[in-house]
Design a protein around this nucleic acid. Structure first.
Lengths: 192, 192
DNA sequence: GCTACCGGAATGAATGTTCATTCATTATTG
DNA sequence: CAATAATGAATGAACATTCATTCCGGTAGC
């Protein structure tokens, strides 16, 4: 069913755009229907409720994000190369779908997320935790709580991409590489 | 009018708590009334509408934030000392009212903010811009777009305090000082 | 080859609920 | 006993969701 897949995707795309821009509570189902160019009732053929829709979307986005940062992960490489890989994955993910990262950031922790969504997000955190933990063991990453280190990099990165999304700054390879350096300097141990 | 001030404040406190936790769109006026322990109608004696309420609250919070970072600002000191001052101001502000920072972060840029709210927020950005600009001129802060540098520090800091707010990590003077160091390393120029 | 019919997909007006806001009434204060 | 403050039930608007109806692609019968 080609048309079916396409319609479901149009709904998910519209929901992602609107949730990212206005938030879940600020988005109405008729808005999603209009943006997706389907009838309001059609949405309920694919998703039980608005709440189920946001959960499916959240899980899809986070799963794609995990894929972006973990695919081809250089397990044997040194910590700096691993950091570059993760950072590169985040950039690829954010560029590929400019709204998804913002959607994840603004909706992780929301009260309407179901256990499966929370667990999916936890998987992402676990992956990042493992990286940070290994870096701390090698004495190359600061001995701060892993949560804090992840928050620093993730916070800096998402705020950055919000600026890019808003058109306030232009994303270039040089800029991204400098941002990466800046984030790395925030978490690494310094010798001087 | 002791009672009047007190009631207006109770409403603002309740709104801040709920907006920070559930967002503007996820918070209903009756919820605010319940939390503030006033009748729903009472809110409209002090604020024309829910939208006016969120704007007044936003402006108050941002103004207090500006005060926190700019009061006693050491204009003559070196850039590192100025950074410590700003960071300390942010910490004081966040500790003084654990919800205000999160409210500002999640609501700056919202569609219902009026021009005055936007302008107030811009004042905060202008202050931070001036600091970053001066640091870049001295060659002590990285030659990145100011917006990006502010995003890095602000993003890292707010995400960090979200963790503290959620009880995931415990805020201690040592931790805060290490976070400050980490943020500073993210924006400063390195010689090694 | 054409028509009549079938069943799932799509629809949007209708439904019941919840919301922001109002206002007639009650409580408080000076 | 005014005058002012506070209230919460009442109101109309907007919401999420439902469902009777329409649409459409395929196909069985002629």
């Amino acid at each position: 069913m080609e048309a079916t897949v396409s319609k479901r995707d149009k709904i998910l795309d519209a929901a992602l755009l609107l949730f990212a821009e206005r938030g879940y509570d600020g988005t109405t189902v008729p808005m999603i229907a209009d943006t997706a160019e389907v009838g309001a009732g059609t949405i309920y053929r694919y998703f039980e409720s608005k709440e189920v829709l946001v959960n499916v979307l959240f899980q899809e986005c986070v799963t794609r994000f995990i894929g972006s940062v973990s695919r081809n992960y250089p397990h044997a490489a040194n910590i700096r190369a691993q950091f570059t890989h993760i950072f590169g994955g985040m950039v690829r993910f954010a560029k590929d779908d400019i709204h998804a990262l913002h959607f994840i950031e603004t909706h992780s922790g929301a009260r309407y997320l179901d256990p499966k969504s929370r667990e999916t997000f936890q998987q992402l955190m676990d992956f990042l935790h493992a990286f940070v933990h290994s870096g701390k063991e090698q004495g190359l990453i600061r001995p701060l709580p892993s949560d804090a280190l992840i928050a620093i990099v993730f916070g800096a990165f998402t705020k950055m991409f919000t600026l890019i999304r808003a058109g306030k700054i232009t994303e270039t390879p040089e800029l991204l590489s400098q941002i990466e350096e800046s984030c790395w300097d925030a978490v690494r141990v310094h010798s001087d």
